[in-house]
């Protein structure tokens, strides 16, 4: 059993929780994810790790309510327990293994969309702790949906905010803001890391391809076990089938077949929360 030690409302339908999971906290690295199952009847939900405290033995997750399991998760309070919490899963971000001196020479830009701010944060924080200040663009619908601004400010070099409706920061999409930074302000980046909705990652990758900037994206497809067993998370990268859970979740954004990935992510859409579709023809 895994105890909820902190719960925060971040934005409409978006919550942050700290979970007591010492083994996961000890092993976690930027770029990895966990799977949460709240109780016997709950789904296994993959969530990217937002932060971890190896001493306290806690892992921070951020989630948006979507289906039945995440809605029930949002109703849980500090002191209550998740039945299952497993991780860290997937491979850490490539830069974790990179030579630090080489890494220091690189100018890195993180682009986060919506809840994507959560998985981007531990990566920027890790770099900051190593003396590397990366830039970041955080985009969201409007001011109310902006996540982790205070935390981000501490660890980034330059933090740029974009809102679709212009209620805060730049008015418009993150792609346009990135384009402006490169074209109008003459910013140069060696690497772009984009994490957010599939459609955002697709267009960021399209943009950076024009500028020939290496781009990493983090895929979050439908999966069951998260250990390579079900193959539900398969995506096409450079013409080859990969399992996002074990080969990723991070891939070269210029090689990912986003259209296929977006289509595959709708596979269970109609079923979510509609138990009536299940077990047609089964005598219960």
């Amino acid at each position: 059993m895994y105890k909820i030690t902190k719960k925060e409302y971040l934005a409409p339908n978006i919550y942050l929780m700290d979970i007591e999971a010492p083994r996961v906290a000890r092993a976690a690295k930027p770029g990895q994810f966990v799977i949460v199952k709240i109780d016997e009847k709950g789904e296994r939900i993959p969530l990217t790790i937002c932060d971890y405290d190896k001493i306290a033995g806690t892992v921070t997750i951020v989630f948006q309510t979507m289906g039945s399991s995440t809605k029930r998760m949002a109703l849980m309070e500090v002191g209550e327990y998740f039945e299952d919490f497993v991780g860290p899963l997937g491979r850490p971000s490539d830069f974790v293994e990179e030579d630090l001196e080489e890494l220091k020479k690189k100018k890195i830009m993180f682009v986060a969309g919506g809840v994507g701010a959560a998985p981007v944060y531990p990566q920027i924080k890790w770099l900051h702790e190593k003396g590397i200040d990366a830039d970041a663009i955080v985009g969201c619908k409007s001011k109310d949906y902006l996540l982790l601004e205070k935390e981000m400010k501490i660890v980034t070099g330059n933090l740029y905010v974009a809102t679709d409706d212009g209620t805060y920061g730049y008015k418009g999409f993150v792609t346009n803001l990135l384009k402006d930074l490169i074209e109008k302000e003459g910013k140069k980046y060696d690497v772009v890391v984009a994490i957010g909705p599939m459609i955002m990652m697709k267009f960021i990758a399209k943009l950076t391809k024009d500028y020939d900037i290496k781009t990493i994206v983090s895929m979050n497809p439908v999966m069951v076990d998260g250990t390579g067993m079900c193959g539900g998370c398969r995506i096409t990268v450079g013409g080859e089938t990969k399992f996002a859970c074990v080969d990723g979740p991070e891939f070269d954004g210029h090689l990912v077949d986003f259209d296929q990935a977006m289509r595959r992510s709708t596979q269970y859409k109609t079923e979510e929360g509609h138990v009536c579709n299940l077990g047609l023809g089964v005598n219960k």
Binding site: K41, G42, E43, V224, M229, C230, G231, V275, G279
Partner: peptide, 21 residues
């Protein structure tokens, strides 16, 4: 593996379980 795991481990065939199949 996916089909059977959803059904057997996650009990998608049973009413009240969240995992779809």
């Amino acid at each position: 593996n996916e089909f059977l795991t959803r059904n057997n481990l996650m009990k998608a065939f049973k009413e009240g379980y969240d995992t779809p199949i």
